[in-house]
Design a protein around this nucleic acid. Structure first.
Lengths: 339, 339
DNA sequence: AACGTTATCGGGAACGTTCCCGGATAAGCT
DNA sequence: AGCTTATCCGGGAACGTTCCCGATAACGTT
């Protein structure tokens, strides 16, 4: 682990560290012969510059931090791939952390990344994050910050989201058009931006088709299994039980699909189903699941590009915008009309 | 971005940096009053020690690096969760990188992590990695290194794997027991350790049941879509086409399941199917897929524990071992006997 | 002949932290 | 009174790098 340093090279070659440094950076004020000498020796000894020393000096790290709720989730891992693609093109490294949907972990990761002098931060909020002061102070301290997917309303910066309103509207409208009237909406924690937008889309579609809203049909979820059971219990105990499900988020789609099948509720005969999901095996499910697919890769990519621009161009007073990328509805068997 | 330093505190309080440093570390040789003064001021100004400066000085970072082929893969993201759990318990951070199954990227990430002074490295090889000299020199330079899942034979260190032999044996035996005789084995690149082990298990089962091996039934895959088509073409063009599939790896299971369904080949009536897969929706598939589930979380966890022991205990000449964790076969509809 | 140029290099500070070495003061002891 | 000892604190080097500021020749220019 005893890595060779610029100082070692200098000592071995009877040169000052300055000279070695300049030779390595190919400075014009170094004798070509000296350069060769240094370069050869460095090569031979496998010299690698120490990025930590550089970070300390330059106060930057050529890397950006990413914090997502979890990576064991197609949606976020696809987003991360988009981020990496963009960062790679511009010579930045990507440091990935997960908040595990925990507020405390999120705060911790944010602090650690900031202390580690990442040049910028890309975030999607944990579902349990209500207080966002840890992110506000970060922005005020001048760390470039871009949000994607789960964004806070209270912070002014670039944000990239999927068109959740339209996605939910489309999905709901599709269910209404195919004759459903009692559409259960299973969604994430009420506080999240995405939750509100999807609910709005759902409501707008109901209104357009003249269907009354029943708040008993909306269930806000965390991610526990027993919750699935109790929510389904409650829904099917209604005097007027649901004849369709519109679920937000990957995980919810899968677990409620499983929950319904466990109860032997026929899809789509008894209830239709449309899930927000980036699961790539949606069409292999039984029955193939209709899905609203979010542009995860593009979101990550776009968010990273915005962040890198912020980092490199350092605009004095940037015009922050919230970009919205189109989602896409794939209609499959789970939402076919009743025979 | 102008973070407060120990020097700033010293200046503000008319103390030397040494004193401030010691006060913050709660040293016994500092007056309690002075400590309070420093601590209060530090708190008020949101002082955060600079881990970069520490890394430079101590030549360590309290973080471990992880390189996996890709994170958009249940298997690896579950393993990462195991790693994070173990690291978190011992106060280490986890820095995640993906090689994207590319040798060049792998080398690059390894170099970057080493230069970044991670205290140890956890690796699963990319499928295109043949030359592992970049890892060998790392080990020789004294960086603690533990492999999991896709391990190299040529490097002596701790390794954690799933029992691929037994998993493949079990899956194949199950198919043989339920009457299948022409079992196609779809697997990863031939060079990988996991590929060889699974092939051995497959062969051992064939032998035990007295079924002749036909090399035409084994297909080594990268991960392109057209490959699925051409491999299926070749397999079903055989004079004696397969009546069962045993696939290695998450991605292969999904894509060949899709490929078979696309051709309207009835599962399990025409061909039975068992896939190595950590996909959590396996039982929601049509038909529910029989799977060999690998202990991904445990593998990650165990590998991390071994690495952290290596880092902290620094044994002079450690006894390296390769640990093998049991996989589990879940029999579902896709491998039922013919009616 | 005095001076500016050019080419080539070294010294040393700085980034934020810890830690070794020392130093001052006051109290306690013989 | 003089010694040790305890208590509390500062100076400065070191980690690896870059960069500003000089320094020294050799050379050409008026």
């Amino acid at each position: 682990m005893d890595n060779i340093t610029i100082k070692d090279i200098g000592k071995a070659l009877n040169l000052s560290t300055s000279t070695v440094s300049r030779a390595l950076r190919d400075s014009y004020e170094i004798n070509p012969e000296t350069k060769r000498l240094v370069l050869d020796y460095a090569e031979k000894m496998h010299y690698r510059p120490n990025p930590i020393a550089l970070s300390l000096k330059e106060n930057r790290s050529l890397s950006i931090g990413v914090i997502v709720p979890e990576i064991a989730n197609n949606y976020f891992s696809q987003a991360i791939n988009g981020i990496e693609a963009a960062a790679y093109d511009r010579g930045y490294h990507v440091v990935i952390f997960q908040s595990q949907e925990s507020y405390e972990r999120e705060v911790e990761k944010v602090e650690h990344l900031a202390a580690r002098r990442v040049d910028g931060l890309l975030m999607s909020l944990s579902s349990n994050t209500i207080d966002i002061s840890h992110l506000k102070t970060l922005g005020e301290r001048g760390l470039p910050l871009v949000f994607f997917d789960r964004i806070p309303a209270e912070i002014e910066t670039h944000k990239v989201v999927a068109d959740n309103f339209h996605g939910a509207f489309q999905a709901t409208a599709h269910l209404l058009e195919t004759g459903r009237r009692r559409i259960a909406h299973i969604t994430s924690q009420a506080g999240l931006s995405i939750t509100k937008e999807r609910l709005s889309g759902y409501l707008a579609a109901l209104e357009q088709y003249g269907v009354a809203f029943d708040e008993n049909l909306v269930k806000y979820c965390s991610y526990t299994l027993d919750e699935v059971q109790s929510n389904l219990d409650a829904l099917f105990a209604l005097p007027n039980p649901p004849d369709a499900f519109m679920t937000a988020a990957d995980r919810l789609a899968a677990s409620y699909y499983a929950g319904l099948k466990k109860r032997h509720i026929d899809i789509p005969e008894k209830v239709a189903f449309v899930g927000f999901s980036n699961l790539n095996v949606a069409e292999l499910l039984s029955p193939p699941m209709s899905t609203v697919v979010l542009p995860a890769f593009q979101m990550g990519h776009r968010a990273a590009v915005l962040l890198l621009d912020l980092i490199e161009k350092k605009p004095a007073n940037p015009v922050f915008r919230t970009e919205s990328l189109a989602s896409e509805l794939f209609i499959r068997e789970s939402s076919q009309p009743r025979k």
